[in-house]
């Protein structure tokens, strides 16, 4: 096999992985902190993509300026959905799955009705046009940028959870909600902000992915399935596990698709994950609970 193709595919896998990482980190944080399996998560990605498209089309804003706006906007959407729907269902986990699924359908249809189902395209930032060449290896600047943003967001998330007062409060609520409230922590607010943060991460992923894939109302569905696989493989409650699993799944799907084809690659990937879960049901890096 040509080594150039191999390395190019390796890098493509890495940039897929970095998008996956941001989507999966949001999912994992929401599930890990409030036990909610958020089936509307893919729609947050989709909304992030459409928000970027709208800012570019109607306001002429480039992607770099749009990113923080998208972060805030999709975070706000997530916050409203948590306050309006999810917060009423915390004691009924099965119902949250149905409810968030319903929210996802509503969001998809709203976009289809309002904007239409045809594909939309977003221009990538001009400063990231072009490629870096290392011999035969071609690295797109834009994909490199995505990788950077994704790792940056991972670091920010880690610091948010471990170094800030909000993070301490969140970790307290996760371990013992009642006693946290007895020490002045407003658990409902912590939950709302956490859900919003997870949604905002998905929104950013959606914004970043727009120049690479076409923006359609159903784009979130495919992406979120892979993100769920990442969370399952990585183990709940571990950012390191999520990062590791994103890398593995991004690379595995890139490599398997190259060696076989997209469909066979997909099947093999799923088989591999099923086997992994058979032998490590709690994922690669499960949360170790003490005391």
């Amino acid at each position: 096999m040509d080594s150039a193709i191999f390395f190019n595919q390796l890098f493509a896998g890495l940039s897929t992985a970095s998008i996956l990482l941001m989507i999966a980190a949001g999912l994992a944080i929401i599930y890990g902190s409030m036990g909610v399996i958020n089936l509307a998560h893919g729609e947050f990605v989709m909304l992030g993509a459409y928000a970027t498209w709208a800012l570019q089309t109607f306001f002429g804003l480039g992607m770099l300026i749009s990113l923080p706006l998208v972060f805030v906007a999709i975070g706000a959407v997530g916050w409203l959905i948590e306050k309006g729907i999810v917060s009423r269902l915390y004691n009924r986990p099965l119902d949250t799955i149905l409810a968030t699924w319903g929210v996802g359908i509503v969001l998809q249809q709203a976009i289809t009705l309002g904007i239409g189902s045809q594909s939309r395209f977003v221009q990538r930032p001009e400063i990231f046009d072009g490629n870096l060449f290392f011999g035969d290896l071609v690295i797109s600047n834009y994909r490199l940028f995505i990788l950077g943003v994704s790792l940056g967001m991972l670091l920010v998330t880690y610091l948010l959870l471990t170094r800030t007062e909000f993070g301490t409060k969140l970790r307290a609520v996760i371990q013992n909600r009642e006693i946290s409230e007895c020490y002045g922590i407003r658990a409902e607010r912590v939950y709302g902000l956490t859900f919003a943060y997870g949604a905002a991460l998905a929104g950013i992923a959606g914004a970043l992915v727009t120049p690479l894939i076409s923006t359609t109302p159903t784009m979130g569905t495919t992406l979120v399935v892979d993100a769920f696989l990442v969370v399952i493989v990585g183990g709940v409650g571990s950012l390191v596990g999520t990062a590791l699993a994103s890398g593995l799944i991004g690379e595995a799907s890139a490599m398997l698709s190259m060696i076989f084809n997209d469909t066979t690659g997909r099947i093999l990937l799923l088989v591999a994950i099923i086997l992994l879960i058979r032998f490590r049901p709690t994922g690669l890096i499960p949360q170790t609970v003490r005391g």
């Binding site: 013992n176 009642e178 409230e181 007895c182 020490y183 922590i185 407003r186 003490r290 005391g291």
Partner: peptide, 24 residues
């Protein structure tokens, strides 16, 4: 009042079984 508001008013609670946060 919510529980967290009562705490903010200055009521300190040491519950049965201590309820120390284990991973903290």
């Amino acid at each position: 009042r919510r529980t967290d508001e009562r705490a903010m008013m200055g009521i300190g609670y040491v519950p049965q079984g201590r309820e120390v946060v284990p991973r903290f």
